[in-house]
Each structure stands twice: as C-alpha cells, then as structure tokens.
Nucleic acid binder design. Sequence first.
DNA 1: ATAAATTATGCAAGCGTTTACATTTATACC
DNA 2: GGTATAAATGTAAACGCTTGCATAATTTAT
Lengths: 339, 339
Amino acid sequence: MTMKDAPTLEDVARVARVSTATISRSINMPNKVAKATHERIQKAIEALGYTPHFGGRALASNRTNTIGAVIPSMSNAMFANGIQAFQEELSDAGVTMLVASTGYSTEAEYTQIRSLMAHGADGLLLIGTDRPKKTTDFLALRGVPYVISWCYKDDPAQLFVGFDNQKAAFEIATCVLGYGHRNIAMIAGISKDNDRAKNRIAGVKNAIKVYGHGARLLRIVESPYMLAESANAFDEIMEGPEVPSVIICGNDVLAAGAITRARERGISVPQQISITGFDDIGLASVVDPALTTVRVPQIEMGKAAARILLSKLSNDNTVSSLEFKTEVVLRSSLARVPL
Amino acid sequence: MTMKDAPTLEDVARVARVSTATISRSINMPNKVAKATHERIQKAIEALGYTPHFGGRALASNRTNTIGAVIPSMSNAMFANGIQAFQEELSDAGVTMLVASTGYSTEAEYTQIRSLMAHGADGLLLIGTDRPKKTTDFLALRGVPYVISWCYKDDPAQLFVGFDNQKAAFEIATCVLGYGHRNIAMIAGISKDNDRAKNRIAGVKNAIKVYGHGARLLRIVESPYMLAESANAFDEIMEGPEVPSVIICGNDVLAAGAITRARERGISVPQQISITGFDDIGLASVVDPALTTVRVPQIEMGKAAARILLSKLSNDNTVSSLEFKTEVVLRSSLARVPL
DNA sequence: ATAAATTATGCAAGCGTTTACATTTATACC
DNA sequence: GGTATAAATGTAAACGCTTGCATAATTTAT
C-alpha cells in the first residue's frame, strides 16, 4: 500500500508552536482555546493537510463514532431501504456505518457481531430477536449498546424500534377472511431462527382460529425470500390435494414470485386465486396485479433506529422502545373468493 | 454509555499465562505459535469474550482492515446487490465494510470519502468516474487505494471493475432497431454528474445514428431512478407531439415505472408501445410484461471489485482492471413495431 | 551427549491521541 | 500594585496493540 505517512499532531505542534494538547483541544473543544492560538493551529493543520489518526483517537478516547448494522441481506429491498435511511441519519450525526450481513444464519450473525465489535463499533443495529444464548451472552458480557429493529416486543429490558409482525399478519389475514376466503394457504419465509417469519405465520394462524366459520389453513410452505424459490412453492401449493382460494405470502418477494408463476401457468390473479404480500416494497406496486400487502414504514423505522441508538450512545437514559404501526394496503391482487 | 470495559490483551495474558506478544501472534499468525499455547489462548479469549481493541490495533499496525464503499444509494437494487456481494467477499477476508451513500451528489461524495478516510478505511470502492477535481485531488493527495466500479474505461491509471455502459446501451438500442422501431424515446437517469447515465444515453444515440434508415430519437426525458418519477416521464412522452413506438429506459426501475403507468392508462405493452430496461434486477422479470433488458453481472462485479481491491491493498502490483460483459435479455416487453 | 539450528516465547519500545493535573498567563477587583 | 480568580497552555501518563530483538525451549545433526 502506498499510503503516504500522514502528519501527526506533533508535526502540527511544531509548526504552530504549541503543545499537542492544545491542538487536541483546539480540534475537539475550540472554545477552550484562545482565538489567536486556534487560528494559528488551523493554519498549520491546513498547511500540513493534517487529519487526526483514527486509531490514535479511538485508543485514547475509546470512541470510534462508528455504528455497526448486522442485517440478513441487503439484497432484500426491505433491509436495503431501512439501512439506507439508517445510514443517512447516522451520517448527519457524523457517525459512520459498518455493515455486515448474515444470510439469515444466526451463526454468521454471531461472527459478524464479534467482527463489528472488534472493528470498534460503538453500538449495533440488530434485526429480530431469534438468536442463540451464545450471542446474547456475548452482547451482555460486552455491554454493547444496541437496538433491535424490524420487530417489536413489550420488553423493557431491550430496545426495540419496529412493529409487531404477528399483529400485522393478523390484520392482513383478517382482511383476507373478510373477503370471504375460507381455504387459505401460506408461503412463509423460513421460520427457523427468524422471529419475524414465525410471528407472521402465528398471526395468520391466529386470525384463522379466531375467525372460525370453518376457515382452514390448508398448508404452509416455507421458502427462502427469492422469486424463483417462491414460484416453486406456488407450484407445490397448486399441485396439492386441495387448492386454496388465496395465498398469503410472508413478504412481497414471495408474493411476486407466486404471481409471476401464476401468470406463467395461466392462472389469473385474483380471479382464480388471490395473493397477498407483506412489506410494501417497490415491487408490490409494480407487479400485475398490484399487491395487496402490509405497509411497513421502512424508511421511518431506519431513521428512528438511528436516532434512538445515537441517544442511547450519548447516555440518554430516557430512550425507550418505539412501536410503529403497519397498515394493510388494498390493491388488486386480493379479491372476493370466486363462487 | 454502559460499555463495560472490554478485556484487553493483558487480561488474556494473565489468564492464559503467556505474554501479550504471544497472544498477538496467536491471533495474527497462528502458525508461529505452538499448538498447545494457541489452544490455551483460544480458551482464555473465549472465556473472557475478548475482542482486539480496534484503536490499539489500528495504531500499532497502521491498518484497520476496513474498506469503505461510497455508493449513490442502497435503495437501488443494483447497488444493493453489488454491495451485498462486495461485503460478503470482504467478510471472507476478515475485512469489514464501511458504507456511505451520496444520493447521486458529487459534493456529498466528497464529504463521504473524507469521512470514510477519517474513519480509517484502508481502501475505497467508488462508483463511476464523474467527480470534480477536488475529489480526485484529495484521493491522490492521500494516496488511498481505490477501485472504480459499475463502469469501465481503458485507462491504466485507474483501477476499473465494471462494464462499458455505452457499449451495452448501444447493443440494446441496436436490438430495438432490429425489431423495426424507428420512432424512439428514452427515459434516462439524470445525466448530470453521472457517467453511467451519460454513457447509456450516448450508446443509444450512437446506435441510432449508426443505424440510419430514418430512425429518430424523438425525445429524451431524464428522471430520477424512482417508479413514480418515471411514470411521470412516461406521461410526458406520451403527451408529446410525436408518440414513439418504443421507450428505451436507463434502468429497470425507470422501465417498471413506465410499464406501470402504461397499464394504468390502458396502453398495452408491447402491442402499443415497447419498453426496455437496463440492469436486470429482480423487478425486471416480475413486471408484466417481463422486461427486455441488459443483464449486468451485479454479484460477480461486486465480488470481483472486492477481490481486486484486496489484492491492491496487499501490495499486489499485478492487479489490473477487469471488464465485464453484458448481454441483452429478451423478454416480452419489446416486440416488433406495430404496423 | 553436545553443538547447531530451529522454533517458541518474552521484553519493551513505540504508534498518535486524549485528558487529568500542573503551571503559566491574563483579567478583575480592591 | 498586589491578590484572587479565571483562562490558556503545557506536561506526561495512559489507551491496547504490534513487532524487532533477545532469550529460552525444543529439535536435529553429529
């Protein structure tokens, strides 16, 4: 690497004819330094092209102004949007974001959390609650401040910035039932190690149970969050012994995959079968028919997570969890059950 | 902040009954340490939940094992996919990724580059070539290693890992012409400060010029990469004095926005008007009709960018630019011109 | 068994900041 | 003009790690 060696505080000190301490103060608490001195120092800094050395600073102050985000995958637009907002908000506060992804594996998450910690993250953004004891123990052991997003729980012991997946799923399922559907199938995300997927399933099950009237959940197929996989799940459902009148999907990608396959097979949505999504990413309004889905305030959630984490980092003890509301967005992929 | 103070090398040393030097070696060059000692150390590290202190490490070694990525926005699936792959590859090498976004502003890019540098990035991933002298001067001054992605130029002075946007645009435009279209419009990305957008426009213009036969580019509307904006651009084109038989779009999001609006207006694609995209993100195969577009190898590009940047960082002087091929993917949104 | 070579470990000096604490300089007040 | 007080600056000790060099332990060769 050809990185030129940067000038140090000492170099600046020599030029400005003051001690390194004064320069440090001039940079970090300018009002503690005489105006004339401050200007002299600025000039020297400018002349030398000095920038504080990150390591030295981190070592001495034990702060990196860096926050880590550990998310399943950026390829999921949901997370990409949220993380984008999260980063923008951090950036406004002069904080930089480290990103690591887990590919939905809790083992990878553990590794990534450690890695981000090792890289000096002052705090962390985590997604969801399903993680092994090993991980939570480590977090507790190290006392890292963190916020958990994309879900919400009424647990004052942890900081949540998210929404209630189960409630949201309950709502859209109720809505589906309201359209007269009785034979229901679900394409869910992989529920292992994924509380959001689990809760979405639970919400649907619960709505069906509460509703009664002979509504039945014929089948749940779990699928990775990918178009192609979901298309296969759709096939599996359609080839089953009983064909549902609606498929509730665990997210928009799954729903889009299902709709696409339906189109390929000449099955018309929603005339022959209704399909619903979850998340309301861009995809949802672009597929034909446009998806009836659950709007999740991705941007707001990302921004709020950043703000709350930042407050926590600045020792604001008043910070508390934040629950976002979701709402069902009616578009055309859900219709009354065909007679 | 309630960060407990983390265990240090010294703590581990005490527990493992070796010197700090040995531990450092055990971590960084395990083969230089006796197997038994290594295991004893591992055990101690585990027990204490030790992670190396970033600052100390950076200070002593003048390396942060951190790479910065400065991209326009993660909300664009193209970048999200690429960055995801980039990060995975870095992660495999034990390097962590810092991310900052510019919102397509070169001024913001300059700020973010400085910020990432200040945060100790060993190297940078940048997108595209359009940036002011101020920025390139700064990069040169500091001698940061960086690679430029999402575009390709035959310039040995810089390291490119990308594809030729102009050539790719030329190809899809040629393809469009091959389908008999003569009255062409384009919804392009905002070309200011964006060489990719510029080159895609240039490619299309060039194909039309070369082709001759009276083909005309009736109109170019530039639009931000958002569904709603693109839909408006579509309206603008359709309300113009001359209606084209095809709209070539600067990327898939723009194309999807146009298709959606066409559907809303009852204009059938491709019977009444053809529409093409660019990038081949998930969206492209989900819209109806599925988009004829240009496949850009996002994942491979991201991975390659990471590998090449890593080699560069490890002083491998043999690294050189890498050009990826793109290909037109024929789906149903492009048809022969209606008679 | 002994010397030589090899491998494993320890010692201690940095790396560039920040920050108590000490000291100097300026300001206010009588 | 001389104190008391406040403001500005300096001194030097961390902070946690890496690494060149020295030393100790082990293996190999004789």
